[in-house]
Design a protein around this nucleic acid. Structure first.
Lengths: 222, 222
DNA sequence: CGGCGCGTAGTACCCCGGTACCACTGCGGC
DNA sequence: GCCGCAGTGGTACCGGGGTACTACGCGCCG
């Protein structure tokens, strides 16, 4: 039995989902919420398996609510449902940690399949959105695993050198790296020099590019 | 009516898909191929709406075949089917330009829904894989559109400055940029300096990071 | 017309980064 | 015990990068 919390500011919309989910015996609607704040509170309280989350709501929207629910660390998973397939919504929702994104015109059986998938730890994306998502994915996500092994360089880096490379990838100067790692600047220079030689980079700029292309550097963090 | 080409090195597997797709009237199997090379040839010849592509095959595998079919630029879309949900396969297939990725244990109706989606220009991913895909997506894909506007800096860059930033993001030195843009190195320095000031970067290293985080820099494409 | 933004270009200066080369410690393996 | 490697550290040198400031032509707008 999958427990579900329905979040939508439209009572009628909630009613529709409620009826649908009640009509099958694999889901159990344990609560409803009309806006983001209530969704966060009730999720903490009711601990549903799945939160059916609307995006557009007065007050705290579904994206922010999703972010908070995910950050709270419970086992509840969020399935975002919206009428609009705006890229910004999809993007924001997924970055907020949603486990799925479906359009409200979804057929009932697909919604149920989606809830089932999300409840079991999988994720779902409406096919109409998946296409654009994949295009971005292919554009942005770098070479990755398969290539890492084949790649001359990364594998030959020592642990310390990899740490240094990550630090370089954060945009730190040799002095800053030395300070944070409690090393002398000379040592940092030695490490950086070896890293450059191993990965075939001319200078730290190309090292940063290498780090990004190989998934060593993470956006935003620091 | 959706025309389909079935690609799999196992005759029995092809047979199973053939029977399934023949049993419904919305799909029409127009051909079969036993390996990658044959798949590429028959796709060019038969121009199917959808190519059901197996990954593991002797000779040219499904990934490479997908790459070539997509590169050929026809309207055929590739739906990759495999028994193994290895990340490398998914990743490679999507980068190769596949419109979908499903596991062979998919239920018949889901396969048909997938074919339908792919034929209509959408994309599908097996829920079990979508989860991992999304995690990577959230990790790698940068701030993006919504944030770009709000972001102080990028919007205020002139066209020329943005070009320069992209060049810096490729790892080029000022001299190289000057050569490729047919400018004096002084001019490049002026531009770079202004870019740094506008985006709030200390040096070109941080500029590269900014470029990557904001989607200005593309992996690999030098 | 005068001003402003943009692109272009230059000079002068300083410092960080990269290279070359060397040296010591600690640890694991032959 | 000795060798090799990883990690640490140092000196010396120089070139590219970044800053500051100046300057000019061009197109656009009030």
């Amino acid at each position: 039995m999958t427990t579900v919390l329905i979040v939508d500011d439209q009572p009628l919309q909630r009613y529709g989902f409620h009826i649908l989910l009640d009509s099958v015996d694999e889901t159990d609607v344990v609560g409803e919420a009309a806006h983001g704040a209530e969704a966060v509170r009730k999720t903490a309280e009711l601990r549903p398996d799945v939160v059916l989350m609307d995006v557009r709501m007065p007050g705290m929207d579904g994206i922010e609510a999703t972010r908070r629910i995910v950050a709270a660390g419970g086992r509840s998973r969020v399935l975002v449902l919206t009428t609009f397939d705006l890229d910004e919504y999809v993007h924001a929702a997924l970055r907020a940690g949603a486990s799925g994104f479906l359009l409200k015109d979804v057929r009932p059986e697909e919604l149920l399949a989606g809830i089932r998938a999300v409840a079991s730890g999988d994720a779902v994306i409406a096919p109409a959105l998946t296409r654009r998502l994949l295009e971005e994915y292919a554009r942005y996500v770098p070479a990755h695993r398969a290539d890492r092994a084949e790649d001359p360089g990364l594998g030959s880096l020592t642990d310390r050198e990899r740490e240094i490379l990550v630090a370089v990838g954060k945009g730190w100067t040799n002095g800053e790296i030395a300070a944070r790692f409690v090393l002398s600047e000379s040592t940092v220079k030695t490490h950086v020099g070896r890293v450059l030689a191993k990965i075939g980079a001319r200078d730290r700029v190309q090292a940063v590019i290498f780090a990004y292309d190989h998934g060593l550097a993470r956006p935003t963090t620091d």
